[in-house]
């Protein structure tokens, strides 16, 4: 079964996204903080990460590199945030994030993207 990790500063964002993604039939885990998110990612194997935390990708932790070096395939990473400035977006892509989406999200569009991503993974 596919596993999706959600990590957002706002508990309502995490709750609403888990409700939207609940229809996909994947197992959804919610991390309470950025630190908990990183610990979960290193401890287990996930198909997809949806997060609103930018700092783990831009603080020198090289999170994506560390995930890539493991034997298990790294999760696809979607960052979802209210931020829209070009500098932040380019920095995220440079650090290995796969996709950036901005709030407010359209649930059908999100479902389509996530479903496509999950089906394209081995």
């Amino acid at each position: 079964m596919r596993k999706i990790l959600l990590a957002f500063p706002s508990p309502i964002a995490a709750e609403s996204l888990s409700l939207v993604l609940g229809t996909l039939g994947a197992q959804i885990i919610v991390a309470a903080s950025a630190r908990a998110m990183v610990e979960e990612l290193m401890a287990d194997s996930y198909s997809l990460l949806l997060t609103g935390y930018l700092a783990p990708f831009m603080c020198g932790d090289d999170l994506v590199d560390r995930l890539s070096r493991r034997s298990a395939p790294r999760p696809t990473i979607f960052v979802i945030s209210h931020l829209r400035c070009e500098h932040s977006l380019l920095s995220l892509y440079e650090s290995g994030v796969d996709q950036f989406l901005s709030f407010p999200l359209s649930p059908p569009r999100l479902l389509r993207k996530v479903a496509e991503e999950l089906s394209s993974r081995p």
């Binding site: 706002s10 309502i12 964002a13 609403s16 996204l17 939207v20 709030f103 407010p104 999200l105 649930p107």
Partner: peptide, 12 residues
């Protein structure tokens, strides 16, 4: 508050 936060995060 829930409605406000929900609307800010999802076009639901």
């Amino acid at each position: 508050e829930s409605l406000f936060s929900l609307t800010r995060h999802l076009s639901l």
